[in-house]
Design a protein around this nucleic acid. Sequence first.
RNA 1: UCCCCGGUAGCUCAAUCGGCAGAGCGGGUGGCUGUUAACCACUAGGUUGCUGGUUCGAGUCCGGCCCGGGGAGCCA
Length: 455
Amino acid sequence: MIPTGIPIKELFRSFSSHLGKDIRVNGWVRTRRDSKAGISFVELNDGSCLKNLQVIISHDNPSLVEMLPIITTGAGISAFGTLKKSPAKGQPIELEAKEITIYGTADPVSYPLQKKRHSFEFLRQIAHLRPRTNTIGAVTRVRNRLSYTIHRFFQERGFYYIHTPIITTSDCEGAGEVFRVVAEHMEEEFFGRPTYLTVSGQLQAEIFALALGKVYTFGPTFRAENSNTRRHLAEFWMIEPEVAFADIEDNLKLAEEMLRQIVQDVLDNCDEDLQFFARFIDPNLIGRLEMIIKKPFEVITYTEAVKILEESGEQFDYPARWGCDLQAEHERYLTEKKFKRPVAVIDYPRTLKPFYMKVNDDEQTVAAMDVLVPEVGEIVGGSEREYRYDVLVEQMKQKNMNLEDYQWYLDLRRFGSVPHAGFGLGFERLVQFVTGVQNIREAIPFPRTPGHALF
RNA sequence: UCCCCGGUAGCUCAAUCGGCAGAGCGGGUGGCUGUUAACCACUAGGUUGCUGGUUCGAGUCCGGCCCGGGGAGCCA
């Protein structure tokens, strides 16, 4: 067995219990500095936290000195020695090495990562090594925490986690272009009919919501849109809760509580990483996150939003008009300038929204909701679902849909249909919002965008 | 897909009006120091994205293509 190391995070958190004891740490060398006073300093990082542990190599120990030339940036090593208080400034503790095992060297001439800052664009080209950087390491830890706390949020409220299919036969009308799924070396359709990668688990989640009450999905989603922006991926992860016996107000409340709780959790548990982002990525980050917790969401109807935009006196490239979709510039104005907080826009014209949204009593609008946040834009999109059979059929006919393809969906309205609602939260956009990374490609371990799919 | 900007050393970038292709960092060597984005000296390192053209002369100007970034649209 490989000797286990103590996580560096653990050493910094409670070093008093380890001081003076012999311990082992496994990790990767970030940098080495040699002092002719007879000491070398090795900064070791193991991914458990942002901080490096300083390992002291005394030049009195000939077997360690022999190793020095290959203890270079990037090397994977194990260090065994005594944990001591550091006599110098900069770190509370350091490890005085007795033994070092070098598992893997990293040739300094060809190892692409250097101590100094790299551009994110360059790091994307070495996506297999970029997790070893401070930023991507921190994003990865925050992403993990968000993932954990989202599951916890729903589990604590009695939601069931549903694994909706990745391969589907419905293209979820209006959710974007789809990827076809075909079996290689097979002429005929593997499934006997055309199949696609899912663009949303919503319709299938509705099936289970109308049986188990409260459910959510959290899985990969695929869109074959040729969109080249810092907010879009061809493969991304989406959280989609779906609740029976719930209307648009319940839906809004759920979205707000969810965002508030997960942001609070990250503030409580990822402080070191967030401070790093605040220092190097986005100085306004912490204030923006605290705003989520302190200020209630502003809720306005689409009609009110258009009126506010018309009376704003702002010069927009496209003036706001009732019946037209809100432009990105409109959304930014509402959330960043007018209200300076998350804004939920509800009750959109039915012509702008998909068939499954509940038609309001005015028959002109549907019970949709988009939650907009500063910097990222739309982070949540959802609605109360149309649960009345006749109205749903009418909606589908208006949108020129083939009713036969959705017989199962209509059946849900024929047998025990009840009001229900849900929404989709783009997970990478949440990661973007919480970390401040400008480009969504830094918010996911292996970004897939048009023309790019490494590994 | 459309609009704008860019592609020069391993990385980040400079190069005036078209006139000898440079710096910092990183690498190597030596020096110095309980160092910590260490410091000092020396040193190696180039198909200026590809291609065609204009010119005595092109990193620089023009055409085509490729790639990247930002914005827009679509959306999460």
